[in-house]
Computed example of a mutant assay.
Amino acid sequence: MAERDEDRFLDDIAEAEAEVEASMADDGPEEQDEVETLRAERDALQDKFMRALADAENARKRAAKDRTEAENYGGSKLARDMLPVYDNMKRAVESVTDEQREVAGPMIEGIELTMRELIKVFEKHGIRVIDPQVGDRFDPQQHEAMFEAPLPGTKQGDIIQVSAQGFMLYDRILRPAQVGVSSFQS
C-alpha cells in the first residue's frame, strides 16, 4: 500500500514538473528563480516524505518482530518454573521398582500418563528436551558442566554423567543440561 502511495506521489511530482517546464519557456529570470526555489522546496518535501515512509515501514517491521517474540518467548518464566515439576515426575517414575509397580501399578501408570501429557504440552509451546548421552561431546551452548573428573577410557570433553536434562524454548536455552565432563588426557 505504501508503494502505491509513493508511486502516486512521484507521478504527481512528474506531472507538475512537466507543467512548470512548459510554462517556463515564456518566463523571465525572476520567474525562473522562483521556480528554482519551489523545486528546492519540493525536493526537501519529497525527501521528508520518503524518510517518513521508510520510518513507518521500519516501525511496522519492528512491531511485527516484537509481536512474534512476545508470542514465542512471553511464557518463558512459566515454562522455566514448570521444569522442576517435570524433573520431579521423571525422578518418581525412574525410582519405581518392579515390586512397587505390582502394588501401585495404576497410580504409577497415572503419573507416567501425566508426564507424557506434560511433554506434549511442552512440545506444543516450542519447548524441547536437550537429552545428552554419556559419551557425547560437551557443548557449552547446551550443557552446563557440574563437575570435571578424569575417567580412563574417555577423551577430554566427553560427557561422563548426566545430572539433569536441559530444555530449549524454540531457539533459546531455557535451561542447559547439567552434566559431568571428563578431564582425562591420554
Rank of each mutant, 00 (worst) to 15 (best):
M1Q: 05
D7N: 08
F9N: 14
D11S: 08
D12M: 12
A16T: 10
E17N: 11
A18M: 09
E19C: 09
V20S: 05
E21F: 11
A22G: 13
S23Y: 14
S23P: 05
M24L: 09
M24H: 05
M24W: 04
D26L: 12
G28Q: 04
E30D: 05
E31I: 06
E31Q: 09
E34V: 02
E34L: 09
E36C: 06
T37R: 15
R39M: 13
L45A: 06
Q46W: 03
K48Q: 14
K48V: 09
R51C: 04
A52I: 12
D55A: 06
K61C: 03
K61N: 08
K61W: 06
R62L: 12
A64R: 14
D66V: 08
D66W: 09
D66I: 07
R67W: 11
T68A: 11
E71A: 14
G75V: 09
A79C: 05
R80L: 02
R80F: 01
D81I: 04
D81V: 03
L83H: 07
Y86F: 15
D87S: 14
N88R: 15
M89H: 00
K90A: 07
R91D: 05
A92V: 11
V93N: 02
S95R: 11
D98M: 08
E99M: 01
E99P: 01
Q100A: 12
E102L: 04
G105D: 01
I111G: 03
I111P: 03
E112G: 02
E112R: 13
L113Q: 08
R116N: 15
E117D: 07
E117M: 09
E123L: 00
I127D: 00
R128T: 08
V129E: 14
Q133I: 00
Q133M: 05
G135K: 11
D136H: 15
R137C: 09
D139S: 11
Q141Y: 14
Q142M: 09
M146D: 05
E148L: 11
E148A: 12
A149G: 01
P150Q: 10
L151F: 07
G153M: 06
T154H: 15
Q156R: 08
S163I: 06
L169Q: 00
R172W: 00
R172Q: 04
I173E: 03
P176L: 04
A177K: 13
Q178V: 00
Q178K: 15
V179S: 06
Q185G: 05
Q185C: 03
